[in-house]
Design a protein around this nucleic acid. Sequence first.
DNA 1: CACAAACTCTATAAAATTTATAGGGATTAT
DNA 2: ATAATCCCTATAAATTTTATAGAGTTTGTG
Lengths: 138, 138
Amino acid sequence: MLSKKTKYALHALTYLGKHRENKTVLIQDIAEEHGISHKFLENILLELRKAGYLGSKKGKGGGYYLIKEPKEIPLSRIIRLLDGPIALLPCVSLNYYEPCDECKSEVQCGINKVMAQVRDETLKILENKSLQDILDGE
Amino acid sequence: MLSKKTKYALHALTYLGKHRENKTVLIQDIAEEHGISHKFLENILLELRKAGYLGSKKGKGGGYYLIKEPKEIPLSRIIRLLDGPIALLPCVSLNYYEPCDECKSEVQCGINKVMAQVRDETLKILENKSLQDILDGE
DNA sequence: CACAAACTCTATAAAATTTATAGGGATTAT
DNA sequence: ATAATCCCTATAAATTTTATAGAGTTTGTG
């Protein structure tokens, strides 16, 4: 399951995607719309900005706005950014690899092999769905 | 990512799958083979037995054994049993459904729709991989 | 029959992670 | 100058995961 952080990020991105004509959107507005804690959401938007998805403007009249095309924001990226690995095991993660303690040898581990396949197929799904697909469904 | 519980369950099932000729296998043996805590593994094997994957024999000479064909044990089932939902959001979970607090209406939520698709496609993957596939890779 | 080996079951503790809050700083429009 | 707004880091609270403990129960064996 996705963490609330990621779920909130998706809601925020969706909201921003729906308000691209406005110059900026307040954290407050997104938080209120979805009943999310302002401060918690603030941290999430900050991460999205640092990762290059959002732009922001400080001071009075400031706020956030989307700086990427919705179709250029695949679910895989958002999930990785906020939740970490997409792979089901650390030993098959492309971006967050770590060996598994209880495995003597990865090369002869059937679990490792199957999970690498699962990762590849899962990635295909998540790379092919973007914020645009979410917006299309609203 | 899978919890350690699920990961250990997969290791245990694999071990049991590789020792089907023996009548029973000791918890201890599996725990030692993978450096897992005996007591933690015990709880896991108990769950697997209650769910109908394993049989057990008490007393001296007892232990656990696989009572299903490895190809009849899809990853989806093991993951659901020990980790819970496969869906990325509670609002699209088939087996553990719960509404999302921050969603006003599921029918007009683009996230919900996309995640339902992701769930369907992910399920296809996990239902098609079984313990047999793991055993084949060992 | 006594005993030891093994699983059964439930409760609880420890650790880790996620979720949420807090508050002072920096910037900007008016 | 002031108020609105994002920036940043730290910490607290809640939840979940991981691990441990210990008293049952069953069974093979001498």
